[in-house]
Simulated assay, not measured.
Amino acid sequence: MRLLARLLGYLLLIAALAALAVDLLAWSTTGRFRLSELGALWAQIDRPSLNLVQAVLERHVWQPLWDGLFWVLLQPAVLVLGLPGLVLLLLGRRGGGRRDSHFSRR
């Protein structure tokens, strides 16, 4: 389970760094720094899949779920991807310190 958490954490951090790279590239061309919204980046990558997710959630799952996801899609991609990535890396790190030191004292 820890391996899966670390792997997913690394993937999310890589995606966050890629989103930051897109923002820095836009900054170098426009002269204005702005963090991209997750939904805007998703639409640039694959707009039909974003539309499909919206249609499925609204029509077949639960309308308020799309409303909550829509709020997340309006947030900066770097934060939406990076913060969960860091949390997963922390949760998936190797335990050690306390448990091992307790047994080594005996």
Rank of each mutant, 00 (worst) to 15 (best):
35 L>S: 00
30 T>A: 14
22 V>L: 05
31 G>D: 06
20 L>K: 00
31 G>I: 03
51 N>Q: 15
31 G>S: 05
50 L>F: 12
26 A>R: 02
47 R>V: 06
27 W>R: 00
26 A>H: 11
57 L>K: 04
43 A>M: 12
21 A>T: 14
39 G>E: 01
40 A>H: 01
36 S>W: 02
53 V>W: 06
58 E>T: 10
46 D>I: 01
30 T>V: 10
33 F>Q: 13
37 E>K: 00
29 T>I: 07
22 V>M: 04
48 P>D: 15
33 F>M: 09
37 E>Q: 14
56 V>R: 03
58 E>P: 01
58 E>R: 12
51 N>I: 09
59 R>E: 09
57 L>C: 11
52 L>N: 12
32 R>M: 05
60 H>Q: 12
42 W>I: 05
47 R>I: 06
51 N>H: 11
59 R>D: 09
47 R>P: 11
25 L>E: 09
19 A>Y: 01
48 P>G: 09
58 E>M: 09
32 R>L: 06
49 S>E: 05
43 A>T: 14
40 A>G: 04
54 Q>E: 11
41 L>F: 04
22 V>A: 00
27 W>K: 00
45 I>Y: 03
35 L>M: 08
39 G>F: 14
56 V>W: 11
45 I>Q: 01
53 V>F: 06
48 P>A: 10
49 S>Q: 13
48 P>T: 13
60 H>L: 11
41 L>C: 06
25 L>M: 15
42 W>M: 08
45 I>H: 01
60 H>S: 13
59 R>P: 03
54 Q>H: 13
32 R>K: 04
32 R>D: 11
51 N>A: 09
30 T>R: 13
31 G>Y: 05
35 L>H: 03
60 H>Y: 05
43 A>W: 05
24 L>W: 13
49 S>D: 13
52 L>P: 04
44 Q>M: 06
49 S>P: 02
52 L>S: 10
23 D>V: 00
36 S>R: 02
21 A>P: 11
57 L>G: 12
52 L>M: 11
24 L>G: 04
31 G>R: 03
30 T>Q: 14
44 Q>H: 10
25 L>Y: 08
21 A>H: 12
37 E>I: 03
23 D>W: 02
40 A>R: 02
27 W>N: 03
50 L>D: 08
34 R>K: 07
58 E>L: 06
50 L>H: 07
54 Q>L: 08
24 L>K: 12
44 Q>L: 10
24 L>E: 07
24 L>P: 03
27 W>V: 15
20 L>A: 07
46 D>H: 03
22 V>N: 00
19 A>P: 02
35 L>A: 03
25 L>I: 12
48 P>N: 15
25 L>W: 14
